[in-house]
Design a protein around this nucleic acid. Structure first.
Lengths: 185, 185
DNA sequence: ATATTTAATGAACAAGTGTACAATAAAATT
DNA sequence: AATTTTATTGTACACTTGTTCATTAAATAT
């Protein structure tokens, strides 16, 4: 069962309007009213599909997270000769992924946005890392894998935050090399 | 020049009302109207001092951050025999600090709150760690100290987030021991 | 092509937001 | 104690929010 064309058009119009507005102002400052005016969609129609502007953004968010997962699956092309003992491709690919979706991450890392988005990102990275951590330490080890992966996932995101704060002036490649050095300390 | 008694009373009433409301509902769902009704303060008066409910919360935030800094200055009492090579007292004291202000951190780590609060916390921890990092690696080293401290600060906060997610079921002491183990891996 | 289903619209509602200003009352100053 | 200063109040305004519902119109099914 495919979705009604009208629904598709409505959602598309709202998505385009949101992307347009996000270039000018922050997510939290976008009102339902102005979004609907720009999208030429009735306000009631918006509320029929989304409860708030954030929910619309979350649809976009999901597609980005799919790319993050895809990046993880992808062959590891860029840093063959930079591997340290505990460094795995997933942790390294993330900087290229962030670079690719820089405008998006500019929003996700912006101060006014709810912590929920950071957590969604955190969850994805933690899940990717969790597999490697549990594989690395086996089953019988007496340490909370969730804690170890939370530590490592958020450490990487700490670099991403600092990268964002420095206006992404470094290249993704620079960030990879930095990560390798930090891990080898 | 001391502040007008009326201002003090107004702010006190608003602060108490906020603390009361935060026990029942999330920060972002508290309206200016209900806050002022509970505090018995005119809505116009609220806007004379704060632009939004969040600004009021930020005043409380500052006092907590002062305690975090104080904790750092305090003699290191709890983990004399757990020190690993790179582990310093500041990173360890943070779990006791979080435990002490658990209701506060429950709010700061809640999904609906803006990322700004996380960043404020991040900044404080990063600053504390920065001193140790630069001391440890000297001046002539060719690595971005901000990046290294961002990595380490956020790694610790990753543990704090996971701790929060597991409803603070571990003791601060448990978290200290966990940190030492993660660092020694 | 027509009938049926269902999404979008427009209008109206109560409630909250942010701002402004004259009137009042409570502090600080003399 | 009287005067001056200034914070608070009450009221009003235009606006946004979230919701409801009958009407309209577009898409799907026959």
């Amino acid at each position: 069962m495919k979705t009604d064309l009208r629904i598709f058009k409505t959602k598309e119009a709202l998505r385009n309007a949101l992307m347009h507005l996000l270039e000018q102002k922050s997510l939290n400052s976008i009102s339902v009213t102005e979004l609907c005016q720009l999208a030429k969609v009735n306000r009631g129609t918006f509320y029929a599909h989304y409860g708030q502007v954030e929910n619309l953004f979350e649809e976009y968010f999901k597609t980005i997270m799919e790319d993050l997962a895809d990046s993880y699956q992808e062959p590891y092309k860029y840093v063959q000769n930079l591997l340290s003992k505990d460094l795995n491709p997933a942790t390294i690919r993330i900087f290229h992924h962030i670079e690719k979706y820089q405008p998006f991450y500019h929003i996700v890392f912006s101060k006014t946005v709810p912590l929920a988005y950071y957590y969604l990102l955190f969850d994805h990275v933690q899940t990717l890392i969790k597999d490697d951590v549990s594989e690395h330490y086996g089953n019988g080890i007496d340490i909370d894998i969730s804690m170890v992966s939370a530590y490592q996932a958020n450490a990487i995101l700490g670099l991403a935050i600092e990268w964002h704060r420095q206006d992404f002036k470094q290249s993704a490649e620079d960030m990879n090399q930095l990560l390798v050095r930090v891990l080898s300390i």
